[in-house]
Structures are given as C-alpha cells and as structure tokens.
C-alpha cells in the first residue's frame, strides 16, 4: 500500500521526529515498499482466530505491595540533561499569568 508524503509528515509528528525534506522523500518511498510487502497478510483468512498477545501463556503475576529498594533522588537525577533542585528541567509548558 503506498503512503503519501502528507501521511508521512503526520506520522513523523506523531512519532516526535523532526525530519528533513530528504528524509521525508526517502521514508515515503521505503515505508511504501515495506507496507506493500506487509499487504500479503490480507490474503490470509484469520476469521475466528484468537490474537496472541504473549508467546508463552502466563498468569498475571501478583505480589505484595511492599516498599522495596528505591533509587536515591541524586542517582536518578545524575544523567539529566538539565535539572533544577530536585527536578528535571524542561522548557515552559504552561504560560505564566502575566503573559496571558
């Protein structure tokens, strides 16, 4: 199934990927090839077949809700690209009141 350039751009935004014009052209073509190959599944009758979500059937694993080992805050923050006090810092998401 071919994929349009516009669809490709929508997918890139959903996937949070800033692509160059050249990448958009390349992926439009390559995803079209791969989706074309995947089309072969349509010819297979799966009416009434159950879906497999897990290769090995297993029961839902339960455990007691007990406090275990925790990652110290300093360790968790050590690899952060930016931090402020005990927080991960990111660009402002909500406008401040005086800017409204």
């Amino acid at each position: 199934m071919p994929i349009t350039r516009k669809e490709l751009e929508e997918i890139a935004l959903l996937a949070r990927l800033a692509l160059s014009e050249a990448e958009i052209d390349l992926y439009t073509r390559q995803l079209g090839d791969i989706l074309g190959y995947i089309e072969k599944l349509r010819s297979l009758d799966t009416e009434g077949v159950e879906a497999t979500t897990h290769a090995v059937p297993m029961d839902c694993t339960l455990r007691e809700d007990e406090l275990g080992e925790r990652l110290p805050v300093e360790d968790a923050l050590r690899a952060a690209p930016r931090r402020a006090e005990n927080f991960f810092e990111v660009p402002r998401i909500i406008a401040a009141h005086d800017e409204e």
């Binding site: 994929i3 490709l8 997918i11 959903l14 996937a15 990927l17 990448e23 992926y27 995803l31 989706l35």
Partner: peptide, 9 residues
C-alpha cells in the same frame, strides 16, 4: 527512525 515511523503508522 524508519522503524519508529512504521510502528507509529
């Protein structure tokens, strides 16, 4: 990137 795009699609 290609696989993330395909998976998102």
């Amino acid at each position: 990137k290609r696989r993330i795009m395909l998976g998102t699609y």
